[in-house]
Computed example of a mutant assay.
Amino acid sequence: MTATAARQQSVVWAAQRLRADLLSLMPVDVFRKVGRINVAVPTPQVLQTPSMWADGQPMTIGEWLSTSQMDLDAHGNAFGVIRQVDGLGKPALIDLVKIDTVSCTVRDNRIVSYRIGGEKTDPRFVWHERQFTIPGFPLGLSPIAHAALSIAGSAGAQKFATDWFASGAMPSAHLRNVDQAIPDPTKALMIKQHFLESTTAGEPFVSGKDWEYKPLTAKAAESGFIEQMQYTDAALTRFFGVPGDMVDVQTSTGSVTYANITQRNMQLLVMNMGGAVKRREDAISTRILPSARFAKLNRSAVLAMDPATRAELFKIQIESRQIAPSEARELEDRVPFTEEQYAEFDRLFGSRTSNPSNTPPVGQS
């Protein structure tokens, strides 16, 4: 088994690709609260080009969000190295790293250090996002791993949760003493036995020194979980929170129809992607921005409407005085009306203003 074995089901890749693509379409807007109003402020450079492919080749925020989202959905974690900080000590350059090169040292359910490419790295200089967390474990889980640990409808599923990292020809994980070697083979065997007894029973493993645990076959186990449980494409889309019809999966009720595109996209962004988007907003806000500011991924950028629905929305907003006509035109990437255009409207539809003397009082006709 390889790290990509779980993606042999095309629907798994399609779901991950859809979620990553949607994140990449959302610009990152920054606000600060003034009274009860959110006021837009300039977006820092790190939220426009957070990384560099090479000198003169910036990695845009869309690429960065898409790449890290793929790792979040595939592994439950996304890692990066903070190469530069600004005057406030906040990240100014974040280079994403392959998750296969990262291991963590955990003490009392807290990550005390990271190793990236074999080099010990201070947690302050590691960008770490996680999703689908469980109590007492400081790392995230992929949707499939989370499902494997959460589904307890039968004894078989429960047994799988305890034997999740079981494998045949290769060890399932590497348990290594971080501070010193263990020269005595008898002592090493005793520690291994103690570790296996604790984890098999679902209990915490207690040791006197710091230990580094690096799973070797997690992705292979996920692939085995898919194969063993014989989950259909429709069930796999539920794990990733993606409607089946959006990745060409037939549903039991046949094709799904919607009144318009807006309702369809609204369901996807709110019900399916809402949690993932909010987690990313929180990570960016708390780690990159000063405390008085916060980030929001612009969902409206992907909330496409059919032309008739969009025109009706603008009409309602203008008539209810929520926006001005010039604002609606700006949202449509159109320049404001000129005086010549206003005069043409007046010739076609009458004057823009009514005569106050001919306007009846309110309540009279």
Rank of each mutant, 00 (worst) to 15 (best):
P325N: 13
E129Y: 03
G140P: 03
T199S: 10
R32M: 14
R7G: 01
E63C: 03
R83L: 13
H194A: 15
D346S: 14
I82M: 10
P361A: 13
V249H: 09
G274V: 05
V126Y: 07
S167G: 07
R352H: 12
A92C: 06
I261L: 15
M70P: 03
G118W: 12
A188R: 08
F225R: 14
F294S: 09
V102P: 00
Q230C: 11
E312M: 09
P360I: 05
W164Y: 15
L289Y: 10
R17T: 04
A304H: 08
V302W: 07
I261V: 14
L216D: 10
E330K: 12
A301M: 07
W13G: 15
F31K: 03
M271V: 06
D179L: 08
H174G: 00
S320H: 07
I116A: 05
D71S: 14
L25C: 01
A74Q: 00
S68M: 14
D122E: 12
D95A: 13
V12A: 05
R280L: 14
Y213D: 00
A343I: 04
H194T: 11
E119M: 07
W127D: 05
Q317I: 00
S320F: 03
S24E: 15
H128W: 00
G87D: 15
L297F: 09
G117T: 10
P135R: 09
H146K: 06
Q180E: 11
D245L: 02
V34W: 02
E197H: 12
